[in-house]
Design a protein around this nucleic acid. Structure first.
Length: 493
RNA sequence: GACCCCUUCGUCUAGUGGUUAGGACACCAGCCUUUCACGCUGGUAACACGGGUUCGAGCCCCGUAGGGGUCGCCA
């Protein structure tokens, strides 16, 4: 099954590039990848990374990226759940090259292939009942042979079965030898066929099992590279046997290690955020999440901050590591901060308005956007998430009286309130430009023998209700003269 | 339990037999400064352990330990 591929000098693994594929030549084959989630109601962060890797791999090689919804379990699958995946991929900016394929629509084809295998003797009818199955599993466990079971119907005449008895179709897997997978990430791995049992490909109700459907669909969709989570690795050996049984050409496999929680344990509910929706709501930018996810499990020298274009140019499967990695929220926050600073002010203003819209007690009037936009260049320098950005901007759109932080209240002493009256007077006749304001404030400080900080901090408290904010001149400009004077007046009253 | 995979600073990683083991995040110190950030400078910090092979091993081999995955008529 394995094809020996040449190596790039820079590739750790046999190069999967179609350009170097000995059998396919430079034009015969286009790279085609797919992301195949089951619609369970959320787009998992691990799934998001898998989708990203598939997308980048396809783009890097000039190929296609497809989506297949594995909705054969109709109890868990809903249109809403599918929409969550579609929305998530759209938010991440992972565009597919074709409409999604719904696995549930392909059951006839899956059954057809199963029956072809039956007719060819590569599969057999198994009449085992659930109770018999349990007994065999119990035996297998007792014998210390793992959980694999052997169906007696592999070598029994189906005619011996009770007439009309329901049956499942099992793959007639080889008993001798071994099955080899030449994985793009994990390397060459082999398993003795004696370890693999005859998996069911078609259930007794005629529906296909996942293991069978994936193979049929990947083959029919012309998938050349199956890049997926490492949790599918063991399954691959049985899937490979289906390809072999049908005489189909094998895709290349690349199993990406899983993402663990910050504590190193498997990602689960108790780890909180797992869905890309959660990350969006926590104020992460899609390009930042993608950038972070890209670097989780993949590396290319010292590259850290990468745009989508750069990622496409640099990404290849040989840069994917083999060890699982942990979620690191501190680093995610840092990366997000970098992308926030790089983001367009107008876009960030819209985002902040969106986050602020959910908060009570704010005055999101006609001048709200203008104030936020005016201060955005300074605001975005000090935020790591859009939530923080919204927090830092909220004072701009808060009606009077301003909520006062204790430290801010402390700054508004009687003495400082007298000072602020003088400052307000100076401000009343100052042009509201950063340079002019700076000059005025410094001049006032010099005239009254005060250090700039002792002037700026009380002013900051009066204007923002806080002791931290962007530069005071920028705050004044964003608020505008009228609002600034009103706020000072309110603070000194 | 069986089978499979993994193991470089706390975290993400670079490293393909000869390196002062590099970068990033976090952390610490300093600079900048009207606050908070940003930025800049410097610092602490890693080859899981034990055997081999080799003149020489983070890199190759074998064990051990730890972690993970899979064993369904779920996907």
């Amino acid at each position: 099954m394995s094809v020996t591929l040449p190596r790039h000098a820079s590739c750790r693994h046999p190069c999967p590039c179609y350009k170097h594929h000995p059998k396919l030549g430079s034009t015969a084959m286009t790279v085609r990848t797919r992301f195949a989630p089951s619609p369970t109601g959320l787009l998992h962060i691990g799934g998001a990374r898998t989708a990203l890797f598939n997308y980048l791999f396809a783009r890097h090689h000039g190929g296609e990226f497809l989506l297949r919804i594995e909705d054969t379990d109709r109890e868990r699958s809903t249109a809403a759940a599918t929409q969550v995946i579609l929305d998530g991929l759209a938010w991440l900016g992972l565009k597919t090259d074709a409409p999604p394929v719904f696995q549930s629509t392909r059951q006839v084809r899956h059954a057809e292939v199963a029956h072809q295998m039956l007719a060819a003797g590569r599969a057999f009818k198994c009449f085992l009942t659930a109770a018999e199955l349990d007994g065999l599993r119990e035996q297998a466990r007792a014998a210390g042979r793992g959980m694999r079971i052997d169906s007696p119907w592999r070598d029994r005449d189906p005619a011996e079965a009770p007439t009309g008895a329901p049956f499942a179709i099992r793959l007639r897997a080889p008993r001798e030898g071994e099955t080899v997978v030449d994985d793009l990430v994990q390397g060459q791995v082999r398993v003795a066929n004696a370890e693999l049992d005859d998996m069911i490909i078609l259930r007794s109700d005629g529906s296909p099992t996942y293991q069978h459907a994936v193979v049929v669909d990947d083959h029919d969709m012309g998938i050349t590279h199956v890049i997926r989570g490492d949790d599918h690795f063991t399954n691959t050996f049985r899937q490979v046997q289906v390809y072999a049984a049908m005489g189909w050409e094998m895709p290349r496999f690349g199993h990406v290690p899983l993402i663990h929680g910050a504590d190193g344990a498997k990602l689960s509910k108790r780890h909180g955020a797992q869905s890309v929706t959660d990350f969006r709501d926590m104020g992460y930018l899609p390009e930042a999440l993608c950038n972070y996810l890209l670097r989780l499990g993949w590396g290319h020298g010292d590259a850290e901050i990468l745009s989508r274009e750069q990622a496409i140019a640099l990404f290849d499967i040989d840069g994917v590591g083999r060890a699982p990695s942990r979620m690191d929220y501190a680093k995610l926050a840092h990366v997000n901060g970098v992308w926030i600073r790089a983001a367009d002010n107008e876009r960030l203003t819209d985002e902040v308005l969106h986050f602020l819209a959910d908060r009570p007690g704010l005055a999101l009037g006609p001048d709200a956007a203008g104030r936020i936009r005016a201060l955005m260049p300074q605001l975005k320098e000090r935020a790591k998430t859009l939530v923080e950005l919204a927090d830092a901007a909220s004072f701009l759109v808060h009606p009077l009286p301003l909520p006062m932080a204790p430290k801010a209240t402390a700054l508004l002493s009687a003495e400082n309130r007298l000072m602020l009256r003088e400052v307000a007077a100076a401000l009343a006749t100052t042009d509201f430009s950063p340079a002019a304001l700076d000059t005025t404030l410094r001049a006032y400080g010099e005239r009254t023998g005060r250090k700039l900080g002792t002037v700026a901090q009380p002013l900051r408290a009066a204007l923002t209700g806080s002791t931290t904010s962007p530069g005071i001149e920028a705050v004044l400009v964003a608020l505008g003269r009228d609002e600034a004077l009103v706020r000072i007046e309110a603070a000194v009253a």
